[in-house]
């Protein structure tokens, strides 16, 4: 399957999903006024990844900030990543946050609790 590559813009994050190596990266800001449109192809890609899934999948997430329009979309995306564990992959979610950024630390903790799946919370020094 094709990789998914979306360049960062001022209101949307960089997306690089490498299907062959099971490496997914999301980095940047997510504050578009309508996030549903932005996350739709990402969610569709994760669903198709199930058909050509790798034994190990590593997801690195590094949001600097996301707005409330993005929050539900991010949860939906994370839930699909977590559910990949039922499709034959060992999934790791690394949630990176800037040192002293309480909000992004809390956000990662909260998503992890809601999904009942342990994220690695990684401080960027």
């Amino acid at each position: 399957m094709d990789n998914l590559s979306i360049e960062a813009k001022n209101k949307t994050p960089k997306i690089s999903f490498d299907a062959a190596n099971g490496l997914m990266e999301i980095i940047g800001i997510s504050c578009a006024e309508n996030s549903v449109d932005f996350y739709k192809p990402i969610i569709e890609w994760i669903d198709s990844y199930k058909t050509e899934i790798q034994p190990i999948t590593i997801v690195d997430i590094n949001y600097k900030y996301f707005n409330t329009s993005s929050a539900k979309c991010i949860l939906d995306m994370l839930e699909r990543f977590v559910n990949l564990k039922n499709h034959g992959t060992n999934i790791t979610i690394n949630w990176h946050y800037e040192e002293d950024d309480e909000e992004m630390f809390d956000a990662g903790t909260n998503f992890s609790e809601i999904l009942e799946f342990q994220f690695n919370l990684i401080k960027i020094e």
Binding site: N67, K72, I114
Partner: peptide, 22 residues
């Protein structure tokens, strides 16, 4: 916040009532 975040109801804009709480 978590009740609305997890209710699976998406508004056209995505947020669906989280703004004031946030």
């Amino acid at each position: 916040y978590n009740e609305i975040l997890t209710n699976k109801v998406f508004s056209d804009k995505g947020g669906g009532g989280l703004g004031f709480i946030d």
